[in-house]
Amino acid sequence: MNVVTTLAVLDDNRYFAAGLQKALTARFYAAGVETRVLEGPQAYLADLLFHYFPPGSPSCFCQYAAKRPSALSLYFAVRQPQGYGHADVRPDCRLQAGVIVQNMPIDAALRQVENALLQRRIAPPVRPYVIEHCPCQRYALTVREREIMLCLRQEMRITEIARRLAISVKTASQHKINVMHKMGFQRNAELYDWLRQGFIGERPFDERLS
């Protein structure tokens, strides 16, 4: 067994992540392929990368493609069973090879992976990939919006954020509203849950890979 493939599952649901890793490892082993799980700063190097995105947030894998412009990695969005239909309203990343819903039968999830691998052999993707043309970039946060989200993640009040960034309270509040609109959040609770998870679907998620 000298063929090796690498995989990474970026999901705080460790029970789901461990189950998916085990199932993939067993399926590849049966096909004579050794698997290695990558974590931390090495996760973006995986041949197969599974990334959880919360309801309302479009998937975005462009940040990983930018780090590996010549790679042929396959990216799969992981979604919650509830709210997936809502998330589907927003355009997902063109690099997305499939969607793994957390309560779907494991055989169905494995078939998605196998079909994506087959499709890649039949029609390899064109490189280089132009990130700016991806529809998911329509919802990318601006530098200022990311600054404000980082402050909110530190549990700073809007008045404190405005003072730190030398902007008005009204401007800081509007940036927060803009982010909620981009990410499809209706309530503050959804925003803060997303922040606690590390801005999944946005560049600050990279902090979890370092």
Rank of each mutant, 00 (worst) to 15 (best):
G98I: 00
D193F: 13
T25W: 05
Q119Y: 06
V169L: 06
E190Y: 02
A166D: 09
H175L: 03
R146W: 08
L38N: 08
G85Q: 13
I148F: 11
N103E: 06
P41T: 02
Q63V: 07
E34A: 13
K170H: 10
G40T: 10
F28V: 09
A87Y: 04
Q42N: 10
Y75S: 00
E207H: 07
R27W: 14
Q186G: 06
R146L: 15
V89L: 13
L24M: 13
Q63A: 03
L95F: 01
F185C: 05
P91R: 02
A108E: 12
A172D: 13
L24D: 05
K22R: 10
R36A: 15
E39W: 15
L118H: 08
V89E: 02
A87K: 04
A108L: 04
E160S: 12
M156C: 14
Y29P: 10
H133I: 14
A109I: 00
A166V: 06
G40Q: 15
Q186E: 12
F53I: 08
L95I: 01
H175R: 01
F53M: 04
R157W: 03
R90G: 06
S57D: 10
G56S: 14
L150T: 12
G201T: 03
T5V: 05
F199L: 09
R187M: 07
A23G: 11
Q197Y: 03
R36T: 15
V113E: 01
M180S: 08
I177T: 08
A43F: 07
Q112I: 00
G198A: 09
I131C: 04
T35E: 07
V179P: 12
A108S: 15
D12I: 15
H51S: 06
R203L: 07
V113F: 00
C60E: 02
A8K: 04
L45E: 07
R153H: 11
F61A: 04
A162P: 09
L191W: 13
A77D: 00
A71L: 00
M180Q: 07
W194C: 09
P55K: 11
E207C: 02
D92A: 03
R163Y: 12
M104S: 01
P81V: 10
L20Q: 01
E114G: 01
Q82E: 07
L209N: 11
G85L: 12
E202P: 02
Q42P: 08
S168D: 04
E132K: 14
A65F: 06
V169C: 11
M1F: 13
I161F: 13
E190T: 03
I131W: 01
V126H: 12
E145K: 10
S59H: 02
I148T: 09
S57E: 15
R127T: 06
V113S: 02
H181N: 07
F53C: 03
I131R: 03
C136L: 05
N13C: 13
T25Y: 06
M180Y: 10
V101P: 01
L195I: 10
Q42I: 03
L110S: 04
G184V: 06
A123F: 15
D47E: 07
K22H: 09
A66H: 13
K176A: 05
